[in-house]
Structures are given as C-alpha cells and as structure tokens.
C-alpha cells in the first residue's frame, strides 16, 4: 500500500503523544547520565529536582508579594498579553474594515499602514522604554504595535475578498454603507480576524517576553531571564513548558470561540 493512503486509524492518539514521550525519555536519559558524572549538575536537572522547584514556585508564597511566584508572574504576563492583543484586535478591526471597504479611506491610509507594518517592533522598544520606562504601557504597547499591523492588513484583505456581486446585491436590498459594514463586512471579517489573531499569538508572546526580559519586575519572561543569571534550569525549564501550555490554551480557546460563535464559518468552505 502507498504511504499516502496509510492512516493511523485507532493508533492515532498513540502516535500523537509518541513524540512527547520520546522527548521526555531522551531528557531523562541525558539528565541521568550527566548526574552520574557530576551529582551537582545544574544544566539538566532530574525530574525529582524539577518537581521540587515546581512545588516551590506553585505553593510557597514569595516574601515580597505573599503569592507564589508562578501565580504573580502568570497574572502579570497574561494581563499584559490580553491588553496588548485587545488593543491590536480593535485597531485591526476598525482600520482593516475601513481600508477594505471604503476606497477613499484605502487611498488615504493603505500605503501608510503598509509602511508602518515594516517597522521592526523590537526597534521601537527603546523608544517605548524612553517614553514609558518600567510602566506597564511600554510592554502592552510593544505587543499592540507588533501585532496590529498584521491584523490591519489581514482584515483589509478579508474585507476586500467579498465578491463584487455580493456587494451589488446588498446595495439592491437598500443597504447604506454603514449597514453594509455592520451586517455584511463585520460578520464576514470577525471569524477571520480571530483566525489571524491565533496566528499572531506566537509573535505576541515573543514581544511580551522580550519586553519583560528588558524592563520588568515580574512576569514569566522576567523570571526566566532572571533565573538564567543563576543557571536555575529547574525553574527555567518548567517556566518554558508553562508558557508553551498557556500559548496552546489561548490558541485552543480562540478556536473554540470561532467554532461556537460562528457556526456557519467552517461550513462555508
């Protein structure tokens, strides 16, 4: 049988977890080997050491905040990323729809937003730090600035893909520009914007961790860069796994929202 016709069938779930299991095994063997040579090894902590560190960061309250550090860091980071993405989404929705729907607005703004989208966001970070210093706004602004241009341009494209016939048709139904935007363009764009947002999650986390590493006093990114100084791999590794899990959960939640709120969207294709 050809390989392209071969399906995993009921072994599919098994295949899905296999790479994770292998990664765990490889880590275990490597950590074991290193500890056999040097019991003080800090590079690859054993599972026991990782478990201890996780227990500390999840259960033991920090002296300063009286909350476990994982909790403080997670809340701080999630708040920033949510605010940053919220602002970016709002900008993407409004500017994207206006540029995609109104030719006058597109002539005015499209080249400008194309130019703005080429500015490397990290290059803007020093400016933001000068302006906002250690304040939350610097980190939120970096995420918004990093993600918004992509969302604007994607939403513009999505608005423009509405067929000419459909736009003519809705005009023959007596719709005004505002009604067309509200009842035709907006429903068309919303699930697609959320899809674009899913694609921007990676970038958003990148900007968040960068900003936190440079100017912050708490947050997931701040913590891993702080721990790097002491080579505390038993904290860094669980943090990286935790960040990955959070990113995955956000992506999954968006997918669920799209499916539940726009049941017609997947059928359309």
């Amino acid at each position: 049988m050809r390989l392209i016709n071969l399906n995993a069938g009921r072994f599919s779930p098994l295949l899905k977890i296999l790479p994770f299991v292998i990664l765990g095994l490889v880590y275990w063997i490597a950590a074991d080997a290193r500890h056999a040579l040097n019991p003080e090894d800090k590079l690859l902590p054993t599972f026991e050491a990782l478990g201890e560190a996780i227990k500390t960061m999840v259960l033991v309250p920090d002296e300063l905040t009286e909350e476990p550090i994982l909790y403080t860091d997670t809340v701080a980071s999630l708040t920033r990323i949510a605010k940053g993405l919220g602002i970016a989404t709002a900008i993407g929705l409004v500017l994207g729809i206006l540029q995609g729907t109104l030719p006058l607005f597109r002539s005015l703004f499209s080249p400008f937003s194309a130019a703005v989208s080429l500015i490397p966001p990290i290059a803007v970070l020093p400016i933001l730090l000068v302006l906002f210093g250690m304040e939350e706004s610097a980190k939120i602004a970096l995420i918004a600035i990093g993600v918004a241009p992509f969302l604007v341009r994607d939403t513009q494209q999505r608005s423009m893909e509405l067929s000419e016939e459909l736009l003519i048709k809705v005009q023959t139904l007596g719709a005004s520009t505002w009604q067309i935007i509200l009842r035709v363009v907006l429903p068309h764009v919303m699930p697609r914007l959320l899809d674009a947002l899913r694609l921007s999650l990676g970038a958003a986390w990148l900007f968040l961790i960068t900003a936190e590493a440079i100017a912050s006093s708490e947050g997931l990114g701040y913590r891993i860069f702080l721990m790097r100084r002491y080579m505390e791999m038993d904290v860094i590794l669980p943090y990286v796994a935790w960040i990955t899990l959070l990113a995955f959960l956000m992506d999954w939640a968006l997918a669920v929202i799209i499916r539940k709120a726009f049941p017609w969207y997947r059928k359309e294709k």
Partner: peptide, 16 residues
Amino acid sequence: GSDRGVVFQKYTLFPH
C-alpha cells in the same frame, strides 16, 4: 438601489 433587484449566476447569499 432598492428599485432594481438582481439575481446573478453566481450565488450571492450571505453565508452567515
């Protein structure tokens, strides 16, 4: 405008 209705060959329905 709404004084002239149209039906195209391509289906022009609102998918949502």
